[in-house]
Amino acid sequence: MEFCWNLNGEAYPDILEQTKTADANQFDAALIVSLQQAMDPWILATQLAASTNRLRFLVAQNTNSAQPAHTAKAVNTLNSIAGNRIDLNIVTGSSHFELHKEGIVDHHRDRYRRTEEFVRILGQAGEDSITHEGEFYRLRQYRVKPQAPPPRLFVAGSSPEALAIAARHADFSVVYAADFESTGRAFASAKRQAAQLGRRIRCGLLIDVIARPTTEAAWQAAEALGASFGRSDKKMKSLLLKSIDSVGIAEHRRLLAYPDHRVDRHLWSGIAQVSTAHALSIVGSYRDVMDTIQRYHELGADYFLLSGMAGDREIERIGQYVLPALKTSDQEVAP
């Protein structure tokens, strides 16, 4: 199993501190998002890679606002500088409201056709030159310089289109966390489609964590977090759900319908009241969190993208009390 911390915040000093804390607390990687309100992911990744020696960086690239050839050049350049520690997370966008700000009005299916063309071009980055005549991109004898070992490619999305693209082209399929049954079906679909093509694919899960020494303390933290959500933030999320065509985020509606937002013994959907990405938190003692992560692992998750909305010390709690045991058990069962 690999564990990636989801960097958040708008101020660079805060992001840098999170990065160094993740690096010191057994995380394998840090996710750098691609959002309109966030810093440019490539500039940020360059700075953070220069500030660390071991940590990998999973750099998100939105196919609605980037060119595949330029993306290949950027990741190769940074990998040449940073010792091949950069992976690519391909995202497609989810909210009509946000996409319209950039003049993007394409339907969900059209955006995923663009994404597939995008990743197909990325797959040719190691060739002498790329000539491509497609629906969205046209290249004529384009040479990607510098050359570097190809990055690991992640395709994010819970829709059938996203799973199919990941199965055909990616190293990892990343989905938003849902209940165990739904998540297991998504992983099985991606792996089955990849196997039909003679490929192997690994699966990743985006999920929040509220870990405390005891189960009771964790649920108290979850309830306090839920009580802190303002009416205006909840209203904005409600409006977002009306404009969303992301399958993973649209699933928030169903998960929010559970009584007290308790989806399972240690799964809480309270953050879906305000979060535009996360649907679930794992809530419980350190042992509870380990067991829940292990259950998702048994369903097919090898890569966990974790966040901690309930507290600024979640990185340390997870890194010191959860990850060591999981990594030890993972090594013990490795062939």
Rank of each mutant, 00 (worst) to 15 (best):
I43K: 07
I43F: 08
I43C: 09
A45N: 00
T46F: 05
T46I: 03
Q47R: 08
L48I: 00
S51I: 05
T52S: 02
N53F: 08
R54N: 14
L55E: 11
L55T: 13
R56P: 14
F57E: 01
V59D: 09
V59Q: 08
A60V: 10
A60F: 06
Q61P: 01
N62I: 07
N62L: 09
N62P: 11
N62Q: 14
T63A: 01
T63F: 07
N64R: 08
N64S: 13
S65N: 10
A66P: 09
A66V: 09
A66S: 15
Q67G: 15
T71E: 08
A72V: 01
A72Q: 14
K73P: 03
K73W: 07
K73Y: 05
A74K: 06
A74H: 01
N76T: 05
T77Q: 04
T77H: 04
T77V: 00
T77P: 03
T77C: 01
N79Q: 08
N79F: 11
N79G: 01
I81T: 01
I81Y: 04
A82C: 11
A82G: 04
A82T: 10
A82V: 14
A82Y: 08
G83I: 13
G83Q: 02
N84S: 10
N84M: 02
N84C: 06
N84E: 09
